[in-house]
Write a protein that binds this DNA or RNA. Structure first.
Lengths: 218, 218
DNA sequence: AGACAATGTGTACGACGTCTACATTAGTGC
DNA sequence: GCACTAATGTAGACGTCGTACACATTGTCT
């Protein structure tokens, strides 16, 4: 006797067949919801399988352990960050002259990153804490619509700054890490650090100033 | 019948009396060790009480819940960060002229912070993730030898930069958050972010460059 | 049709946080 | 000196989690 599809609670992946069909994806989606609500620690195997309407151990057919699911959720989160950055970049008018376009494009990486962090703190935190190495950070699964991850969008913007002549080529190597550090640090301080209780307006001022500092200090 | 002092495992706080004497401190110390070994999530009530040679529920006489213990461990961690910064500042020769002394003192805040992060990643992470608000970040319990926390050491160094004439007074307000963001972000990227696998030498180069960026971009 | 691999279920174990009830002890007022 | 009370520690239980093992069901390939 197998009870299928009607355990209590809001079943997202209700089914009437023994097989689920797309459990892998369903688990990641459930994990993303859990991360949105409660950050990395809330991404639990059992909770995800519950949402998918499946027994806890079913997860092990698709993920080696909880860490593997967390990694998949992390990749999904990074993809959404990339989308947020691209959305911010899309606001730049096409008619902008190349130099200021490059500058605005670069700034949009930082502001998009930070706005996403403020809008989706749990998912953001999940996306960048306990994330895999840098190597895998440039892989396809963390990409946005254009197929690039947040890190690649940053390096692209920096390369364009050099091409346009705003950033001297000598300062280019390693610049991605400087920029990333400043923006990522503010995100952390704003989300679960000591700046947590800051009001939205003041946060916006800080965001602008940090991006200013990066642009000037690179 | 009460078994006292001889549960299995490495008992740190072995005792022969029913009362422990200083359980509160013993639990925080155990928590610090757990944090050093495994980061914030490793700070468990049961593990801490085990190390103190005490039953799990004894912790509830001193901490409201696990979060309260974590907070105490976090404060202890911040105190150690402050000590690391002070140690780095103490390396500045007394005979240095006031202007460069102020500059070096400021840079020492960043480098001390980052060196501690690299030396004690678990404790560092515990100290600054899920930490209480900024208000309490300036309280006494997170202080180092001089009685100031990491944040106060930073603001002190910035004030001195202004006093000496290196930093224009108009740029002073909010500068602590800019500097903190950059340094904290690099720490996070180096510890559990995508820069985790970086070798020590390259990390040191990045540290220098980030502090350069802050000094120039402020 | 029958074998095999893929996928999902059931049961079980230890660790965790935390609740409730109980035991032991240190001070305090007499 | 002694009983009372508050502080402190213990015992047991419950629900959660991750995960290991054995078993059930199904799609697929020959």
């Amino acid at each position: 006797m197998t009870t299928i599809g009607t355990p209590p609670g809001p079943n997202i992946g209700v089914r009437d067949t023994y097989r689920h069909g797309d459990l892998s994806r369903a688990l990641v989606e459930a994990g993303v919801e859990l991360a949105r609500a409660g950050g990395p620690t809330a991404v639990a195997l059992r909770a995800a399988t519950r949402r998918a309407g499946v027994s806890p151990n079913a997860a092990y057919r698709h993920f080696a352990d909880r860490g593997a699911l967390l990694e998949a959720v992390c990749s999904a989160g990074q993809a959404r960050v990339a989308e947020a950055i691209e959305a911010e970049q899309a606001l730049i008018p096409d008619a902008t002259d190349p130099v200021t376009a490059a500058r605005l494009r670069f700034r949009a990486v930082g502001t998009g990153y930070l706005h996403f962090a403020l809008a989706e703190p749990g998912l953001f935190q999940t996306a960048f804490t306990a994330s895999p190495d840098l190597e895998s950070a440039t892989s396809g699964s963390r990409a946005g619509a254009v197929g690039r991850g947040p890190f690649e969008l940053l390096t692209d913007a920096l390369d364009r700054l050099v091409a346009v002549g705003v950033l001297p080529g000598g300062r280019r190597p390693g610049a991605e890490f400087l920029a990333w550090s400043a923006v990522h640090g503010l995100a952390m301080l704003l989300i679960n650090g000591p700046l947590r209780a800051l009001e939205a307006g003041q946060a916006e001022v800080l965001i602008r100033r940090v991006v200013d500092m990066v642009e000037q200090g690179l």
